[in-house]
Amino acid sequence: MNNKPRIAFFDFTGCEGCQLTVIDSLENHPELLEAVDIVQFREAMSEKDDDFSIAFIEGSCTRSSDEKRLEKIREQAALVIALGACAHLGGVNAVRNIQPLESVRRCVYGEKAEVYETSIAKPIGDVISIDGFIPGCPIDPEEFIRGVKRLLQGNRPLIPDYPVCIECKLRENACLFQRGKVCLGPITRAGCGALCPSLGVGCEGCRGLIPNPNITWLKEVMAEHGQSSERISAKMGLFMTNQILESEVIDVES
């Protein structure tokens, strides 16, 4: 047996897009396969070995059975990294969290609603401790590769803590607000290279909030640009339901 770091990938509630992006990233960086041993990756291989030291977890936690599985991974892995918006934030799945669970279940499963277990969608960091995260829906392949290299060096992935606006301006985009559109760039964590604004589409916030975002005033800006409060809430709730709920609790308390 060699002494390369042993890496495993796990999936919970998500679309598997982040795992696909990992597979994609290998195309440009085949060196990764020489630097590590991938011992478990359901999306890409049938072998399965439970001796791993770094676990990448995709998907949110939506069932009590998920929690047990997560705890088991945590026991084995020296490092646990949340992979993508669902694992990091709860992801799009978390839009259910502001609706009654019963109606959510009925809407999704119809008559079979009673058969399936489901609960609110939680980021995995709410269930087990995590050592880092690779944000985004889906993740950015280059950021994933850089993150792995940092882990191999014994560091956490270096994820920007500044907003998308910085990358948007570094790329010299005209601001979408000046072109009659709205954008969550000022409160959303950068790292995607301002992907959406660069393509003319407002940021949806898939990488989550920056530290200490000024949500109140971004709402004012959106209202000034003709957005109703329903639209503003809907936009902010797509990826950031859990984070916005949390920040509102903090607002009320303070």
Partner: peptide, 13 residues
Amino acid sequence: GDRCLGCGICNVV
């Protein structure tokens, strides 16, 4: 400071 978004655009441009 209440109003500022802390976005850094003013510095970048």
